Simulated assay, not measured.
Amino acid sequence: MHSSIQAPQTLFGFDFGIKRIGVAMGNTMIGQASPLAVIESIDNQSRFAAIQALIDKWGPTQFIVGLPLYPDGAEHEMTARCRRFANQLHGRFGIPVELVDERYSSAVLSAKRGELIDDRAAAVILQQYFDQHTN
């Protein structure tokens, strides 16, 4: 009997925002997400250059992008922006992208005003993915 054991894969989670993008990292072996970086969204060129630098350093094989929805599941302006961001990630880097409902991820975070939490929000999004897909 031969079982196929897959090597652990590194995943990036993204919490997309107009001003900042939170990035988290985790791997499929451990199934734990950790905050990695907060990218200031100055313009597309610098945003994707910063993401490229993280890819070069960590070698992710999949991206998980949080998809914001209204509590009833309806889409809004940021939903479309996140879908576009996910398409741009896939188009630029050729890495598979999966969207994950992030409606309840912000409820897990309680932050003081002005505190940068985008990377932690990304970690919550990625952790949701791990909890749903690895057991």
Score class of each variant (00 low, 15 high):
H76D: 08
Q62K: 15
T134K: 00
G94D: 09
A7D: 06
N44F: 12
F85R: 07
D101T: 02
F48N: 11
Y70N: 15
Q132C: 00
L126E: 12
Q6I: 04
V38E: 13
S105Q: 03
A86T: 02
I64D: 02
A24C: 05
M1S: 15
Q45C: 03
I117K: 15
L67V: 08
S4C: 05
T79R: 10
R92W: 12
S3H: 15
P8D: 13
R120T: 00
A107M: 14
K19P: 09
A122F: 10
V100H: 00
A33S: 13
Q52M: 07
T61Y: 07
R92V: 10
V108W: 02
E98K: 06
T79M: 07
L36S: 06
R83E: 03
Q127N: 05
S110Y: 03
F12I: 14
V23H: 08
I39M: 09
R84E: 15
L67P: 04
G31K: 05
W58P: 04
V108K: 15
A74W: 03
E77D: 13
S46C: 03
Q9M: 14
M1C: 08
C82N: 01
V108Q: 09
T134C: 00
A123T: 05
T134D: 00
G26I: 04
E98S: 13
I30K: 14
R47K: 14
Q88T: 15
A121V: 13
L89R: 03
E75C: 05
R103Y: 02
G59V: 03
L99P: 12
Q127M: 02
A121Y: 01
Q52R: 14
Q62V: 02
M1F: 14
V100A: 01
A86H: 03
I125Y: 04
M1L: 09
T61Q: 14
R103E: 11
L99N: 08
A86W: 09
F12R: 05
D56R: 08
D131E: 07
W58G: 02
V97H: 05
V97L: 02
Q9S: 13
M1H: 12
D43F: 12
S46H: 01
E77H: 07
A24Y: 02
R47D: 07
G31L: 01
A53N: 11
R120C: 05
V100P: 00
L126R: 02
Q88W: 06
W58R: 06
L67Y: 06
L11P: 04
I55L: 12
K112L: 10
V65I: 08
L126I: 08
I5V: 14
P8C: 10
F130L: 01
P71F: 05
G59L: 10
V97N: 01
S4G: 07
M25K: 14
A37Y: 03
R113P: 03
Y129G: 00
S105H: 04
A53R: 11
D101F: 00
D15S: 10
F63V: 06
F14L: 12
K19V: 13
T28W: 04
D118C: 07
W58N: 14
L89F: 02
V97G: 02
I30T: 12
Q9V: 05
I64Q: 04
P35F: 08
I18H: 09
K19M: 12
